[in-house]
Simulated assay, not measured.
Amino acid sequence: MQRNIIDAHIHFDHYKENEQQMIVQSMDRWNIKGLITVSQDLPSAEKNLLLAKTYSGIYPAFGYHPEQSLPDETELAAFFDWIAEHEKEMVAIGEVGLPYYMRRDNKQIKLEKYIELLEQFILLAKRYDKPIILHAVYEDTSIVCDLLEKHSVRKAHFHWFKGDEKTVERMLENGYYISFTPDIVYEKEIQALAARYPLEQIMVETDGPWPFAGLFEGKLTEPKMIHESLKMIALIKKMELQQVYHEIYENTLTFFKLKLK
């Protein structure tokens, strides 16, 4: 018997309409109680809000994904005004962070303006008392931790996190959460991180429709894949599977203050 799960990070608006319908229709079968759907920009946030009003179990987060060009001042002001208008309808600020992969491919990209934008979103999260969903990996994470600490923001979720031991220790001390994608089933680096991080600060996600390898090769990324992630976490932690399901489910409910529909 499958236990309850929540996908803590999915780009639901990026799926085709027929794929969205298929996922929603299969949620009861796979005991998927909710999808935290993150936004790319204002049009993405508008789509996610509409999806949340269309389908039960969809919980939107509003943010500007960092792996793209910066918005101009007019675009950003319009987005912040829109968030202010709809802040009661979002469960988090996200996805926001720093452009690690874009900078890796283009050394000319300057980080300062991205840091300024991230700080504005951190202040929004604090103003509206919402958790923040972060795209920050490797050396970028210390910059993000500096900003979170500066503004005393502790409800932080680093999705698909990767980083060194010193950074992990800092995140643990601050009570930050991380989430694991289906790549935990086959990636040794991610398995090692799962062994290190305490269960009470862990969630699970798909980051769909991002594709995965291994037994997921060639398959549409769906929330039901999380069941395989949870089995691997239980194996790594040497814990009863039922306990892992229960704690991660409760972690997610509490972190996002979800009142399931």
Rank of each mutant, 00 (worst) to 15 (best):
G163I: 00
D81P: 01
K257N: 15
K166F: 12
K261I: 08
E165F: 10
T206K: 04
E46N: 11
L70C: 09
F180W: 06
F255S: 00
Y114V: 05
I83C: 03
I23T: 01
V24Q: 08
T254P: 00
L51I: 04
Q68C: 10
L123T: 07
I58W: 00
V168L: 14
V153Q: 10
H11D: 08
K110A: 13
E112A: 14
T141P: 00
E116P: 00
I178Y: 00
L193N: 04
E85G: 05
V244T: 06
E189R: 13
L35T: 07
H135T: 03
T181Q: 09
T254K: 14
V204E: 02
K224C: 10
I190W: 02
A77R: 15
R3Y: 13
Y100C: 08
L258M: 05
G218I: 05
S56K: 14
F255M: 01
M90Q: 04
W160F: 07
G175P: 03
K188L: 14
G163D: 01
Y55C: 03
M22A: 15
D207S: 08
F80N: 09
D164K: 09
M90C: 09
H246R: 15
Y15T: 07
S179M: 04
K47V: 08
T181H: 08
E46G: 09
H246E: 15
D146S: 06
M1N: 12
T181V: 09
P211T: 12
S56C: 13
L172N: 11
Y55I: 02
L258N: 06
Y100W: 13
A156N: 04
L124N: 04
G63Y: 05
D207P: 03
K110E: 14
Y59K: 02
